[in-house]
Simulated assay, not measured.
Amino acid sequence: MKVPLGVILAGGLATRMGGGDKALLDLGGGVTLLDQVIERLQPQVTDLALNANGDAARFARFNLPVLPDSIDGFVGPLAGVLAGLDWAAGQGAGAIVTVAADTPFFPDNLVEHLMRTAEGQDVPLVLAATPDGRHPTFGLWPVTLRDDLRAALGGGLRKVVQWTDGQGGREAVFDGAGDPFFNVNTPEDLEKARKIYGAQA
């Protein structure tokens, strides 16, 4: 399988952070969550896009294609996955890897491990997981399933794992020190992320 395209999911409402763009929150020294996520994902994929809704101009400095949800109503991350699959189809790509814009320290071997786990699958569909459970915004998604996903979303499906399980999806388990998929949901999480980032800088 060719190295897939990357799609950063930033289409949520950030209600626990008081709304706005979590991706643009400062980690330290003017570096945003999105800067950190781009830096981590870009070396792992062949090209990169951002799934976000609203005025795309607020992300102009990142020089990425901005892909809005094609389904109205903020129906969850699967809508962002679908937007990414439609973009990838237009690029002639076979698959995408998605990551969440509020998870700044995900593994730097994410794509490699997802692809290795997909070996032997007729349809390469894999979600990242840790021993504590799955992380459904981090996954490998085949372009061939985009019409099936569009139909499922149109029929009211919203739960990622419900759809991936129905498609025979696999899990790529990441284990190691700490939580590789720690994400920023609250102001307290942001402070924790700033400390982690400061220690790594």
Results as ranks from 00 to 15, higher is better:
G90M: 03
A83D: 03
T46V: 15
W163L: 09
L24V: 03
T144L: 09
V160P: 00
A101S: 14
T46G: 13
H113N: 11
F106D: 01
L125E: 04
A172R: 07
L13F: 01
A83N: 01
L82V: 02
L5D: 04
E119V: 14
P68W: 11
A199V: 00
R16F: 08
V97R: 10
T144V: 13
L27T: 04
P131T: 03
D189C: 10
D102H: 13
L34A: 06
F181I: 01
A199S: 15
D86T: 04
L140R: 04
P131N: 05
T46S: 15
V123F: 04
V31D: 07
I71Y: 07
G133Y: 08
R16T: 12
G176Y: 03
A172V: 02
P77D: 12
A57E: 13
Q121D: 12
P65D: 10
R16E: 15
V75T: 10
A88K: 04
L153R: 02
R194H: 07
T46Y: 00
V37H: 06
K2S: 15
G133L: 07
D55Q: 05
P131I: 08
G6M: 10
G139W: 08
L190H: 03
G198W: 00
D47C: 07
A56Q: 12
L34W: 04
T103S: 14
D21S: 14
F105Y: 04
R134Q: 09
L85D: 07
V37F: 09
V81R: 02
D108Q: 14
A10D: 05
A193D: 06
V3M: 11
F74R: 02
G90V: 01
D165K: 09
L110N: 00
P180D: 02
R150Q: 11
D72C: 00
L27Q: 07
Q162F: 09
I96S: 05
V184R: 03
R146H: 13
G20R: 08
V7A: 12
D35F: 05
N183S: 15
P187V: 06
K192L: 12
F182A: 10
D189G: 12
A23E: 00
N53L: 09
T186V: 07
A89Q: 11
D86N: 09
N51I: 00
D122C: 00
L67T: 06
V161S: 14
L149G: 03
P104C: 04
P43K: 05
T186E: 03
D102A: 14
V99Y: 11
Q42L: 14
A57Q: 13
T164F: 05
P136A: 13
T186R: 07
E188R: 13
Q91T: 00
D35I: 06
L190E: 02
V45Y: 10
Q167M: 12
A56P: 15
T144R: 09
V99C: 12
V66A: 11
A201K: 14
P107M: 04
L33P: 07
K159D: 12
D35N: 09
W87I: 02
H135T: 07
A129E: 07
L5R: 13
G90D: 08
D26F: 06
Q167N: 07
G19I: 05
V111K: 01
K192R: 15
A128T: 06
A60L: 03
D108N: 14
F181V: 02
V123R: 10
I38K: 08
N51G: 12
G92A: 08
A100T: 09
G139C: 09
N53Y: 11
P187R: 06
